[in-house]
């Protein structure tokens, strides 16, 4: 356990980077995923096809492959990121948005059809009825699965440190072990602990949000 305390500064600096990637990618993925879900239920066929195509390609690609494409593929078309943290945020956002899209879409489908009909009958456009009537109700039913996506995202950030030299928690773990042979178990316990510093409070917050936003029907 001493090894964790001795390297607390490294763990802390890695933790902050993990948190930064998680929050940034989480926000972007939530926005992008919601837009994609809107595409998938849109009355306009090309938008539907775009949404479906995106989800099917991205969701079925391993995250590591998405990272490789962003870090080494995009520079081929002259799109180079200034640093790996930024590239990691892009890769994580692209990947996670596909999962957010499907969660939000299932929420949209859970809203009674009459709600959207009533909105359209009032003269709201598709986008207005989605934004003001359907999505606010959809989000409330998908708080738990969105929480799952968030927690998976937090842990997925470790691909950035493990394989792409972003100095996050998963990056410092192995490097501390190299400097302190025989301490692997304690270091990994420390790594797990710092992920849990994000995920466990998140889980508690998620169930609180779920209770607070429940709709009486």
């Amino acid at each position: 356990m001493g090894v964790v305390v001795e390297n607390l500064d490294l763990f802390w600096s890695g933790f902050l980077r993990t948190l930064l990637m998680s929050v940034a990618a989480g926000v972007i993925a939530l926005l992008l995923g919601t837009v994609l879900a809107g595409f998938r239920v849109s009355p306009v066929p090309p938008l539907r096809a775009l949404g479906t195509g995106y989800v099917n390609v991205v969701r079925n690609t391993p995250l590591t492959a998405v990272f490789v494409l962003v870090v080494f593929g995009l520079p081929q078309v002259d799109l180079t990121f200034q640093n790996y943290v930024l590239a990691a945020i892009v890769a994580l956002s692209v990947y996670t948005s596909a999962f957010v899209c499907e969660v939000v879409r299932s929420g949209i489908n859970s809203v009674a059809a009459g709600q959207a009909e009533a909105a359209r009958a009032l003269g709201l456009t598709f986008r207005q009825s989605l934004g003001t009537v359907v999505l606010p109700q959809a989000f409330r039913t998908v708080v738990p699965p969105l929480g799952n996506v968030w927690i998976a995202l937090v842990k997925n950030t470790s691909i950035a440190g493990g394989g792409f030299a972003v100095a996050d928690i998963a990056f410092y773990g192995p490097s501390i072990i190299r400097d302190n042979p025989g301490s692997a178990l304690w270091v990994f316990a420390g790594v797990a602990f710092f992920y849990m510093v994000i995920t466990v409070p998140s889980a508690i917050a998620i169930s609180r949000i779920e209770r607070r936003t429940a709709i009486v029907r």
């Binding site: 909105a119 009958a121 003269g123 456009t125 409330r140 029907r217």
Partner: peptide, 23 residues
């Protein structure tokens, strides 16, 4: 599209199952 939405605004509708916005 928008023209249909505009026209619907002039046609009031009351449903069997009320369909009030629950939230």
């Amino acid at each position: 599209g928008k023209e249909l939405a505009r026209l619907r605004a002039d046609v009031g509708m009351v449903f069997q199952s009320f369909n009030l916005f629950a939230h």
